[in-house]
Nucleic acid binder design. Structure first.
Length: 836
RNA sequence: GCGAGAAUGGCGGAACUGGUAGACGCGCCGGACUUAGGAUCCGGUGGGGUGACCCGUGGGGGUUCGAGUCCCCCUUCUCGCACCA
């Protein structure tokens, strides 16, 4: 491998940075601050592949450039180190989860260290460190005191393989999203956090943050705010009633039946003897269908249900309508009951058709017997709403309902409260104890932390209690007044630690507080938060929720934690599989080869299918950054990570691409050996250089690094072509290159005669005069087709441009003998003659 | 099914508010240096004719002097949500 000795240079400068504590977090508060944060990783046993550091490299470029631009930068890294995989690995190996975690963290840290990321490692933290989780417990106490934590007997997602419950969000298609283990429904007493109390603000405050619109929309959808009305229906012949929630109270006159969720509390009371058998059978049948299947139905799917024999009174017109139960009404949303207007709701329409229930039109504009009409139109058959459109009718009917005490306008959210307990070992213990008389008492702040007890068996107990129940000495405790009590044995979910780590980072060594108020005030909010889009909903929503609670308590100074969010795209790589659907055996790249254009396995020649897939160890398509660093160097790797394409897009990793960015760095090194002449002027070279300065400067804000790197390549090519260089040109180039390729930039900077490192050297200024051009090339079109080019002064007036265009021989022949109907002149761009 | 985004050479991708499509890089081809090279350097590289011409940004319409860019319809892909009343 020719070129510079990257190993020597990179080792030298990493050692220098470490020795001189170059990236220690600034403590003076005189400069503007910039808090740039990576979503901290879960330190998995697989180590890093080249896809992981893409975001870290991007933030490092921002951090390094901001330092040179005069900002105090907070640049830190830590570990989201509680969690299930370590616990499972511990069981497998017969060692402590802490040992697994320590090992994995060491591996991650060593891999990251090779990349020259400018973290202040003194600020490193880990959520499983008791010095950290004591404050997670402290925040939980704040939530508890505010009444935001409560216990409830709830249907939970029980995962038998893991022996724990999962939050709704962690379950998809009846499986745990992380491992694919099956999940079933079970009733259990669990700790919940009242995130729904913040639903409205979690939606509204999205307006104030600079996040990708798509992510904001996903959060809005997840919270699922919908405006409508709650309406009371009396049950005919019973002293009973039920509430329904509807977004279309304007269609109340079209109500021809009502539906309760099969689990609805009223069902037993109102079912007639004649229907009791059928109702019981239906409920039995529904209970066997997992919720996943129940929810996975489309709106127009065939409906099932059973008549209860009872009737409800429609409050607007006194009409008697049959009450059914059906599984398309969900117990967990709204009130678990709906009124049905088959004329204007697809689901109700499908149900009415199945059971031959009447369909009454109340909004004109469609053929409601054929299909539900959900569009707008004048209301009919609707008494006091006749003639109004949907909007007007809604307002009128809500006023009517409120006036008559039969309902009111309300807002419903899809968001449910957060299931916050897990039956695991490797998580934060709840700072709570239970008294013999059934009270729950929070542990006093001064008695924190509640340390995780040492165990040698991390499985649930035989009688189904969480692993912490095995630590009987720990479980049995006393209140400060001596009353015996038992500790809560659930632990918090992995999300807990990541809900506030960005706050701990402002003062991670503080023993007396979760964070120092001054430091919080100075550093918050996070100016730029970069991570994968997979956290678009869960982590970001939970963290925002906690942050708002802390804001209400006056403990943080900003309403939102993350001012700007950016999602880096995933890194993909070619995978080889002997089955076209990717379910067969995977092959490593070295195990396959191309024969006559087709990919085959080297050993037995069987055909393999290629597919670009997300990089992962299980697909045999990972590239280890350590190997790339060894071969091409960390600087070339960093450049390639960003050069692959726009940061937010997915891109395919190709090892050959790194060779390209490495060649670029070699070219930069050779620039240093060109003849030096401080009075030498090459306008094209200066223009390219200042174009690159401008583009890189903008990229620090826009994060469009791929084109910025391209412009640095162009500048380097131009300087090479010029053949002679000035020192100031080299200095400028090295400085804008420094955030991307810091090791080499340090070496070159030193080589240019500077001492003290490049990390805090002032960022170069763009000289607009150097961007100016002497002549511009103007395209000349005839009827929109390019016929020639002319070169004119940038400020040439319209007439002279037209004259030059007409005179151009390649153009003139198209103008000969035709009438010019129109002349379009775009200054500095083109001329178009319209002839005919 | 609904919502959001995307589709440009062999590949990753450039193209500011509509204004010379294909920057930069990979790969490939040719050359140089070499005992040799998967090393390095230089040159070429959208397709077709191969003269100074035609065709080209998923497909079809439209607006415009001019469309990768704007509008309508369609196809495909990615992501998210999925009976939420």
């Amino acid at each position: 491998m020719a070129g510079y000795d990257h190993t020597a240079i990179e080792t030298k400068w990493r050692d220098t940075w470490e020795r001189e504590r170059t990236f220690a977090t600034p403590t003076d508060r005189s400069k503007p601050k910039y808090y740039v944060l990576d979503m901290f990783p879960y330190p998995s046993g697989d180590g890093l592949h080249v896809g992981h550091p893409k975001g870290y490299v991007a933030t490092d470029v921002v951090a390094r450039a901001r330092r040179m631009m005069g900002f105090n930068v907070l640049r830190v890294m830590g570990w989201d180190s509680f969690g299930l995989p370590a616990e499972r690995q511990a069981v497998k190996e017969g060692i402590h989860p802490r040992a697994v975690t320590v090992r994995n963290v060491a591996r991650f840290k060593s891999q990251l260290s090779n990349l020259g990321l400018s973290y202040d490692w003194d600020y490193e933290l880990a959520t499983s460190d008791v010095k950290y989780y004591r404050w997670t417990q402290w925040i939980f106490l704040k939530l508890f005191e505010r009444g935001l934590a409560y216990q409830a007997e709830v249907p939970v997602n029980w995962c038998p393989a893991l022996g724990t419950v999962l939050a709704n969000e962690e379950v998809k298609d009846g499986k745990y999203v992380e491992t694919g283990d099956p999940v079933e429904k079970r009733m259990m007493k669990q700790w919940m956090l009242r995130i729904t109390a913040y639903a409205e603000r979690l939606v509204d405050d999205l307006e104030a943050v600079d996040w990708p619109e798509g992510i904001k929309q996903m959060q809005r959808d997840w919270i699922g705010r919908s405006e409508g009305a709650e309406v009371r229906f009396e049950v005919d012949g019973h002293d009973a009633s039920f509430e329904v929630f509807t977004t279309r109270p304007d269609t109340l006159f079209g109500c021809t039946y009502a539906v309760l969720a099969p689990e609805h509390a009223l069902v037993d009371a109102i079912t007639t003897d004649a229907q009791r058998g059928a109702v019981a059978a239906y409920r039995e049948q529904v209970s066997k269908v997992a919720e996943r299947d129940r929810l996975a139905q489309a709106a127009d799917a065939p409906k099932t249900g059973v008549f209860t024999g009872a009737y409800a009174i429609c409050p607007v017109n006194g009409q008697k309508v049959p009450i059914w139960i059906a599984d398309y009404v969900l117990a967990g949303y709204g009130t678990g009951a709906v009124f049905a207007c088959p004329a204007h709701d697809e689901r109700d329409h499908a149900f009415a058709r199945t059971f031959d229930l009447p369909i009454v039109e109340v909004v004109s504009g469609g053929d409601v017997q054929a299909a539900a009409y959900t569009g707008d139109g004048p209301h009919v058959n609707s008494g006091f709403m006749d003639g109004l459109d949907i909007d007007g009718a809604k307002k009128r009917v809500i006023a009517w309902l409120e006036e008559h005490g039969r309902g009111r306008g309300t807002v419903q959210y899809r968001l449910r409260d957060w299931l916050f307990s897990r039956q695991r070992y490797w998580g934060e213990p709840f700072p709570l104890v239970h008294t013999p008389d059934g009270r729950v008492v929070p542990v006093r702040e001064e008695d924190l932390p509640v340390r995780l007890p040492e165990l040698d068996d991390y499985r649930p107990t035989e009688d189904g209690q969480p692993p912490l129940a095995r630590a009987q000495d720990w479980v049995h405790t006393t209140l400060p007044d001596g009353t015996p009590a038992t500790r809560e044995t659930n632990t918090m979910p992995q999300w807990a630690g990541s809900c506030w780590y960005y706050l701990r980072f402002v003062s991670p060594h503080d023993e007396g507080a979760a964070w120092e108020a001054d430091a919080e005030h100075y550093w918050m909010p996070v100016d730029l938060y970069v991570g994968g889009a997979e956290h678009a909903v869960l982590h970001l929503l939970y963290a925002r929720f906690w942050h708002k609670v802390l804001y209400d308590l006056g403990l943080v100074s900003t309403k939102e934690p993350f001012q700007r969010l950016f999602n880096q795209g995933m890194v993909h790589a070619m995978s080889f599989n002997d089955s076209a659907d990717g379910r067969g055996r995977f092959y490593y790249p070295y195990q396959v080869e191309q024969r006559d254009g087709d990919w085959v396995a080297k050993d037995d020649g069987r055909p393999v299918h290629t597919k670009v897939m997300k990089m992962s160890k299980s697909r045999y398509n990972v590239t280890n950054p350590d190997d790339v660093c060894t071969r091409h160097g960390a600087d070339a790797l960093r450049l390639y990570e960003l050069f692959m394409g726009p940061l937010e897009d997915g891109a395919m990793w190709e090892d050959a691409g790194v060779a390209g960015t490495r060649r670029f760095l070699d070219k930069v090194v050779r620039l240093m050996e060109l003849p030096r002449d401080e009075s030498f002027v090459d306008k094209a070279a200066d223009r390219a250089l200042h174009g690159a300065i401008k583009k890189v400067t903008e990229a620090v804000e826009s994060l469009r690094f791929n084109t910025a790197i391209s412009d640095m390549m162009i500048a380097t090519n131009e300087l090479t072509r010029a053949g002679t260089v000035r020192t100031d040109q080299l200095e400028a180039l090295v400085r804008i290159l420094a955030p991307f390729a810091p090791h080499l930039a340090e070496e070159l900077w030193e080589g240019l005669g500077h001492r003290g490192g490049i990390s805090f050297v002032a960022w170069p200024e763009v000289d607009e005069a150097k961007l100016a051009v002497d002549t511009v090339t103007i395209a000349v079109q005839v009827n929109g087709k390019l016929r020639g080019n002319i070169h004119v002064a940038p400020d040439a007036d319209k007439d002279s441009v037209l004259a030059a265009a007409r005179a151009e021989s390649s153009v003139a022949k198209y103008l000969d003998g035709v009438t010019i109907r129109r002349e379009v002149v775009v200054p500095g761009r083109l001329v178009n003659f319209v002839v005919g």
